[in-house]
Every structure is written in C-alpha cells, then in structure tokens.
Amino acid sequence: MTTSLRNRTRVLILLLAVLLLGSVGTGAVLYAADRSAERDRAQPGGPVVTRGTVSLKPGQAGTLVFRNMAWGPHRDELATVAADHPDGPRTASGVQCLRFFTAGGTGICLQAERGALQDSYRAVVLDDRLHELRSFPAAGIPTRSRVSPSGHLAAWTVFVSGDSYAGTDFSTRTSIVDVRDGNLRDNLEDFDLIKDGKPYRAPDVNVWGVTFADDNTFYATVATGGRTHLVRGDLAARTLTTVHENVECPSLSPDGTRIAYKKRVADASPDAPWRLYVLDLATMTETATAEQRNIDDQAVWSDGSTLLYALPGDFGADLWTVPADGGGAAVRLLEAAVAPAFPG
C-alpha cells in the first residue's frame, strides 16, 4: 500500500471515529434530557410552575409566598400563588431557601451552600424584591425563621447537633438580627432566663422558635430539665421569662392575644408526639385544634382565625389549614409547598 493511500485510510478512520463519538455524545445528552423530563413528570398532575417576578412588598392581600417543593427546575425556589386559588399556576423567583419567612417587606432566607466534603449554611436578609441585603453564617441545619411585623428584626433557629425535636439528643442555636444596622444577637441562650419568677441557670438550656410581638418583645421555646416552656423575650433587657409549660414552636396571633403551638400529648408515639394547640395568653386556656395528626412545624396565622402548617406529602410537604378555635376540620390548601408566609 502506498504512503498516500495509507494516509487517506487513516484520515477516513479518524473521521468515522469522530462521527461515532459525536453520535454517542448526542445520544447521551438526549437520553439525559429525556430522563430529566421523566423525573419532572414523575408526579403526574403536579402544579404548573414558571419563572417570574416575586415580590415581598407589603399590602399584597391574598398572596401566599412559600418554598416550592414541586419536582422540576424550580424546586426549592421561593414562589407565589393566589391564596384563594392555590391550585393555580405558581410564579417562581429563582431564589432558593430551605426555610423562609417575610413580614414588613423583609424576608429571611436560610440557604445551604453545597461543599465538596460538607455543606454549610447561611441566613440571608432579603428586601422586598428578593435582593440580598445582609448575610450571616448559620451554625447548623436550618429549621425555623421569623420576621417582626415591622420588618426590622429577623430570627432563625438551626440544629447544631441532632436533627429532630422529637428526642432529647439535639442542640439548637437561635439568633436575632436588626436588619437595619446588622446588630446580631447570635445566641439567645446568652440571655438571662427567669423561670418561675427566679433567675435560672443550667447547662442544658436550649432556645428555639421565635415569634415576634414587636421590635422588642418576642416569644420562643426554652427546653431545660426535660421540659419545654413558652418564654417571653425582652430584647433590650436580654431576658427570657417563662410563661407556660409544654409549648414548642410558638406562633403569635395577629392581634397578639393567642399563641398557636405544638404540644406533646400523653400516650403519643415518641416519634410523633405533637398535636396543634392554641393558648389564650390572658387566661392560659389551651384549646386543641381539630388537626389530630402529628405536627412538626411552626404554624402560621393566615388570618385571625385560621392556622396554616406543613405535613408530609407526595412531593415532600403539603400545606394544610385548620380553624384556631377547635372547630371545623383540617383541609389541604396547597400541595408541594412548605415555609409559607403572607407579605404584610
């Protein structure tokens, strides 16, 4: 075979190899795309989610903001839907949060930063257009977040060890920041605890689940000695004062007179110990809601008479409502959603 013929043969073989590899690569891309689309369709009849503008501006009556849990390109993004048409199309923001809350035009978004060996977390303060204003390192896995009615204060709780409130082998870190100047109270366990009218100190004190009355007064849960307590916090005085026992993840009503919370009930499974209750702060009267399932969430007041909370669902979580007065029945409001809030 002549040198010229051998060279032409080599070129032809090279071209065939390139074409073959290109076909294989294209097929792999198309296959991956088909598999991705198949995964997005894995839950038939799921909500329609499209990218758009999401605003936290106050005064948007009837708008619900939440973490979208529907499978697809917008999973874990903040999204909105009309509260009176919750099965309608959703608008996704492009901003991902593990936990979220908003009030007064301020949002608090707890985010994961994926690492090669270990994830880290941060608390991000957002303005009403979801632009980042400030961020703070978070010491562990995000679990609760709240904003004061004015939008001036934001709070968050993370697990620094353990990953469930159900047992006793866990530790939390709860922080409050003034979003105007960045003044951070990094650990509410540093506040003075007044238990049953007396100063109290113990190495096992845990604090979690802030809910704000105003820019100084808040409520939270304190655990110590194997018991949980509702405490009233005073930001200026740096004090936590016990108010009632067996209260976890409190949520203050819009008029400031009642606390919705999860309560450990007798004879319940250790893995599912909580039911949803409402406490009248004036009389300390407890009312059990009609929701009889285990509630591991910090409920939100959708108005003065209705509670909104998450339960496990096909996509991870769904949002349910129940009357706060003990009547009625639990109703599913929104599938594939968690961490709800109403801009206000």
Rank of each mutant, 00 (worst) to 15 (best):
R258S: 08
T241R: 15
S175G: 08
P142N: 09
G313C: 01
G105P: 04
L279T: 01
I141F: 12
I108F: 00
A310P: 08
G225I: 12
L12D: 13
W274F: 12
Q111K: 06
A154S: 05
R67K: 13
P86D: 08
E38V: 07
A166V: 13
D214E: 10
P203K: 14
D163E: 11
C109M: 12
S120K: 06
L307G: 04
L230Q: 01
G316E: 02
I295E: 11
V222H: 05
Q298Y: 05
R39I: 14
L98S: 10
V11N: 11
G226Q: 11
E291N: 15
G107D: 09
S305M: 02
I295N: 02
T217S: 11
A83L: 14
D40Q: 13
W71T: 10
D178V: 03
A220K: 00
L319E: 04
V81T: 00
D196M: 08
R41W: 13
T143R: 14
T321A: 04
V278C: 01
V18M: 03
L184Q: 09
A213K: 13
L188W: 07
L16K: 02
R293I: 14
T80D: 01
T9S: 10
S253K: 05
I13S: 03
D318A: 11
A61V: 10
D297N: 06
A123K: 14
V322R: 08
T242E: 06
L21K: 13
N187Y: 00
V205A: 09
D128N: 10
T50P: 01
R90V: 05
S120I: 00
S4W: 05
R99Y: 11
M284A: 05
D127P: 06
S161I: 02
D215F: 10
T306M: 01
L281K: 04
A155S: 08
I295V: 15
R227N: 12
M284N: 12
P89M: 01
Y165V: 07
G22H: 07
Q298T: 09
R185H: 12
E132I: 02
D34N: 15
L19V: 12
D163P: 08
V179M: 08
V247G: 06
S175Y: 09
A155Q: 00
R90F: 01
D34S: 15
T287G: 14
L20N: 04
G344C: 03
P203A: 15
V222P: 08
W71V: 12
R180K: 05
A92E: 01
T285A: 15
P44H: 03
R144G: 09
T321G: 12
T168E: 12
P312H: 07
F191T: 01
V210T: 01
G104Q: 11
R129S: 12
C249I: 14
L235K: 14
P273M: 04
N7A: 10
S145D: 08
A70C: 08
R238E: 15
L14K: 14
S161W: 03
K198R: 15
A282F: 10
N206A: 14
G197M: 06
P44Y: 07
S253L: 03
V231D: 00
S23K: 13
M284E: 09
P250E: 04
S55E: 03
S302V: 06
D127W: 01
E335W: 09
R90M: 12
T224H: 13
S135G: 04
T221F: 02
T157M: 07
A288L: 13
T321S: 03
